[in-house]
Design a protein around this nucleic acid. Sequence first.
DNA 1: CACCTTATTTGAAATTGGATGCTATAACTT
DNA 2: AAGTTATAGCATCCAATTTCAAATAAGGTG
Lengths: 163, 163
Amino acid sequence: MTTAPQVAALAFENIDDAVDALRARGLRLSIARRMVLELLFREADPVSAEHVGQTLGIDVASVYRNLEMLERHGLVHHVHLGHGPGLYVLVGRGEHEYLYCDRCATVTPLEPEQLDPIRDRLRRDFGYEVRFTHFPLVGLCRSCADEDRSAAVESHARHPHAH
Amino acid sequence: MTTAPQVAALAFENIDDAVDALRARGLRLSIARRMVLELLFREADPVSAEHVGQTLGIDVASVYRNLEMLERHGLVHHVHLGHGPGLYVLVGRGEHEYLYCDRCATVTPLEPEQLDPIRDRLRRDFGYEVRFTHFPLVGLCRSCADEDRSAAVESHARHPHAH
DNA sequence: CACCTTATTTGAAATTGGATGCTATAACTT
DNA sequence: AAGTTATAGCATCCAATTTCAAATAAGGTG
């Protein structure tokens, strides 16, 4: 599933609280599920389903189902950085938004507040409530943008009449 | 290919100009390629490779190769709206950036200037040069955001002490 | 504890969106 | 008209998921 969560985010300090919340919703705690959860609590950065399955020796189909389920219930969310697989992270852990350079693939995590001015402006202008948690802000990072500008200048030096 | 184009955009009024530009670059104009171009000139909105192949009776592999090539040469670009396949549009036709609601899947095309304030702010704050032509701005549209707010109010009315 | 219901796991197969290798063909070039 | 070589078509592969059927195992219940 690549959709945004339609539930309130649930951030937990530790596994036991998370497990309690899951149980309260009528979900069971299998070995696999606990392992996935434990790994997510351990991991600081977003990880792929593949990585989780590989690391834990759990079938990737189960991993996907678990992650999807945890996401449906607001404990986890995932982000698409670049072209690889989706990357999953515990809500509360690494609660970031991202800048992604589509030339050099650099990822810059941001604190959500840093983008509040942007969000405010988009809300004012278009009524949209945007987030860059699922898809990052995509463009050229400073150095790639600079490269572009130097290239443009050089080209102008060689072809001074073009524009 | 899901990467952003690394070439200057080439907008053309009509097929013949586009064809001339392609030939000038040593490319041939096959029947299939002409058909794809004609369809793109006809179509106002971005279309999927699947749609192009289906409509024209051309193998989708050829369609992908053509679209990719046209994109490499700056005549076409593609955008990812929602979760489906990439959607291709002639540069010049529908030169838009997009707002995408991830609840109701509404797409709102914007004129690039409308986002210049956003772009300026991101340049100032982070040095990034962003575009929303390849990936849209994603969030909740006004009505979905309103729904959320009403729901929050109702929930608060029922559980006045929760927060 | 034994039992029962039903959530969950597994492994395999199917799907989706797209890329690639190959050969026959069809565009340009001269 | 002949020679090059880009392209089309088809089959095949690919990564990232998703789905399916059968086996298993959680977590109540008596």
